[in-house]
Amino acid sequence: MTAAPASFPHRHLLGIEGLTRPDIEALLDRAEDAVALSRQVEKKRTTLRGRTQINLFFEPSTRTQSSFELAGKRLGADVMNMSVASSSVKKGETLIDTAATLNAMRPDIIVVRHHAAGAVHLLARKVDCSVVNAGDGAHEHPTQALLDALTIRRNKGRIEGLRVAICGDVLHSRVARSNIILLQALGARVRVIGPSTLLPTGIERFGVEVFTDMRKGLEGCDIVMMLRLQRERMNGSFVPSVKEYFRYFGLDAEKLALAAPDALVMHPGPMNRGVEISSEIADGAQSLIREQVEMGVAVRMAVLEALATHLPNA
């Protein structure tokens, strides 16, 4: 292993907001180690041996949950998955009761996904252990932004000065919010592109450039980050139809050609092929989508390790 990484001065990871550039860079550096480890035959480390990690998912998510599970296991933690379908929340137990119950089981780290913005903050105030936000409503999804940053840094060698376009349903996207904050903290120039019905009020005050014409917005971009459009928002509520959405805001070869020649394409998944992205692009040479998944495990290992340095008896 390499030299001891810089310390991470936070007990929880609730969002990118509140992290400094050194905090973020320390996590990314730590994640590089985890990438190397994960590519070995022996993928396990003992940093979290004896520790208990609970993945508490109030919203179903196959990929994020398995990514956190694998990350915890590779660090030697005992990992328990708890999803809403099998929990007592359905019986009327409140979030705070659930938190108190789990807290009594003395976990060291709880990873939480919840459909309501701020729910993870609320839970973090009620437990004694470290809490990782795995997505809260339309608020933040910090590990997604970190894994995106790691993917970009490994492929472009830097983030400073890059022009990054975040495209699609920014309004409902926690991925977009976390990425805007993180990428700007690391010196990227961020654009958001989408129909006005899917852009949050006041988005221009986040320091981003706003485009409602995707062709103009993509010009000269180094990174094109697509967002998922939820099925229930496609049929007349926010956009009139899938057909119209793909025509104006779906990423295909023709639109991608307007970006920088070496532009790279990202998507947090799961993708709606033919809605926000064509299969040709998703599976093409410029796509980083599969690498994002690999980086996801590494970044989550880095986060868990960094938080573990603050656990009692660490």
Binding site: D136, G137, H139, R177, P200, T201, G202, F206
Partner: peptide, 15 residues
């Protein structure tokens, strides 16, 4: 209230 704060908190705004 709808606006920058609501957008930052990820909450739905009331115009």
């Amino acid at each position: 209230n709808e606006g920058e704060m609501a957008s930052r908190l990820g909450l739905v705004g009331i115009p």
